[in-house]
Design a protein around this nucleic acid. Structure first.
Lengths: 117, 117
DNA sequence: AGCATACTGAACCATTCGGTTCAGTATTTA
DNA sequence: TAAATACTGAACCGAATGGTTCAGTATGCT
């Protein structure tokens, strides 16, 4: 299996584990937004939202730029590629396991039939 | 966009945010294992590992069954389908954003060219 | 200049997390 | 029956989380 950056996966899965932060990502997918706008949308103090954005930024899922007194948040460049890849490879292992199980079941069925004949 | 079970995503992304737990999943994809085996593999007390397994079980990623004095852990039935779907839909939004940007850039280029002619 | 806006940082708070130890209980095995 | 094995649960610990308030600073508007 491919080797992923442990810390990076830690950070982005942790970032995604909060419903507010997933909401922020969906929001930013629709349109860039300032901290104030996000804070209002999610009924939270500016400071609180700034922390969430910080977590998302740390995970590379969001980038921000301050022009004048407004900090604008956009989706980051990462695009969750590694995370999707990790999940996908896990899913493949999972499928493999159950395919193997299927084969065992099939084998048992075949045997049963053989015994019966 | 599809509606996902908020709490379930919370639980499974949180479960995935720890490298040890991701390791356990990979391990279980290869073969079922007891708590003791997992604890040894990850250099951790039984109690510690039991907690990790509990988190994974809570998230539906792992199931366990105790026969005699041994609790055997297997991959859960969930298979991370919802999580993959969430990430995928996010990726689509992300792509859409950048496609839109591309169009803007194209439009600007076209205009520039028109002006130049 | 003077006020409002938008963010920033420090400090605090309760809760959760990742881990431990220690003291059980239940099941094998000798 | 006695000892070893495998887990379980409670209690504790330090660090991280998710949130707040409060007191700034920097910027923009009149």
């Amino acid at each position: 299996m491919v080797q992923y950056a442990k810390a990076r996966l830690d950070a982005s899965f942790a970032a995604l584990s909060d419903a507010t932060r997933r909401g922020v990502l969906e929001q930013l997918a629709r349109a860039d937004a300032s901290i104030t706008e996000l804070a209002e949308k999610f009924h939270m103090t500016l400071t609180g939202m700034k922390k969430h954005v910080g977590v998302l930024e740390q995970a590379g899922l969001v980038t921000t730029e301050k022009v004048g007194r407004v900090r604008t948040c956009k989706l980051g460049l990462s695009g969750l590629g590694d995370e999707a890849a990790w999940i996908e490879s896990y899913r493949q292992l999972w499928d493999a396991r159950f395919d193997a199980l299927d084969k065992v079941v099939e084998e048992l069925k075949r045997k049963e039939k053989d015994d019966g004949e």
